[in-house]
Amino acid sequence: MSRPLKDRRRKDYTYFLSYRTRWSDNDSYYHINNSVMYHLFDSIVNTYLIQECGLNPAASPLIGLVISSFCEFFAPSSFPEVLDLGLRVNKLGSSSVSYEVGVFAQDQDRPAVVGGYTHVFVERIARKSAPMAPGTREGLSKLLVKSPGAAKL
């Protein structure tokens, strides 16, 4: 059985990206709006896909479509914090991948937020599910969490 998301630590994530919050990220309660968190998830996932998996969003024959997402909040964040985003892959199938993102305040070991989503790779035009490109799969496998009983999609 896996640990609750609130028990994650920095060491549970393989790839990191820093994000300097903006004044406009705050909502009227002076914390980062929940919709901004989904932008951050999208940013780290797509940065990894482009830089480490060779994906070219403008021209790749396959694209990833989000079929499910989640987000749990454990501590508030607000401008002018710098956030560290950690990325891992929890499940990797032939045409799908489940990402998890930990959002950490700088110098903190416990996440303020943990969330993520599942991509299904499809043909750009036909929108039919297709096996991901070998380079994409190879890159994503570097982030795959190796745990007993981990299932494939």
Rank of each mutant, 00 (worst) to 15 (best):
G139M: 10
L40K: 02
A112E: 13
G115C: 10
Y13T: 06
A126M: 06
C53G: 07
R127A: 03
V114N: 04
V89H: 07
H31G: 00
T118K: 12
D12M: 01
D25N: 02
D27P: 09
A112Q: 13
H39C: 06
L55M: 12
G149P: 04
I50K: 09
Q108L: 12
S60Q: 07
S35F: 01
P111N: 02
G139W: 10
M132L: 10
L143I: 14
Q51F: 01
W23V: 03
W23H: 01
D27S: 07
G139Y: 09
S77Q: 06
K91S: 08
C53N: 06
G102S: 13
P111A: 00
E81R: 01
S69C: 02
S60G: 05
P4V: 09
F16H: 09
V36W: 05
V45M: 12
P131A: 15
R127F: 03
T47Y: 01
I125L: 15
Y48P: 09
I32N: 01
D42I: 03
K6Y: 10
G116N: 04
V114I: 13
S147A: 10
Y15Q: 01
Y99A: 01
W23S: 00
K11Y: 02
C53T: 10
K6D: 06
S28Y: 11
Y48A: 05
A133F: 05
L17W: 04
S98M: 04
A59Y: 15
L65I: 11
S141P: 00
E52T: 00
E100C: 13
V145H: 13
Y15L: 04
L5D: 12
S18H: 06
D27N: 12
E138R: 14
A150P: 00
L55V: 15
N34I: 15
Y117I: 04
Y19W: 11
H31T: 02
Y13W: 09
K91T: 06
S141T: 02
L5G: 06
N26I: 01
G139R: 08
G139F: 08
A75P: 05
R110Y: 15
T136H: 07
N26Y: 03
H39S: 08
P61R: 15
G102Y: 14
K146H: 14
T47Q: 01
V122T: 03
S94T: 14
N56V: 15
S35L: 05
D84I: 14
S18K: 08
T47C: 00
E72P: 02
Q51E: 10
F73A: 01
G135A: 15
G115D: 11
G102V: 13
S94D: 12
K6A: 07
K11V: 05
F104S: 08
A105S: 14
R20W: 03
E72K: 10
V45E: 13
S94W: 04
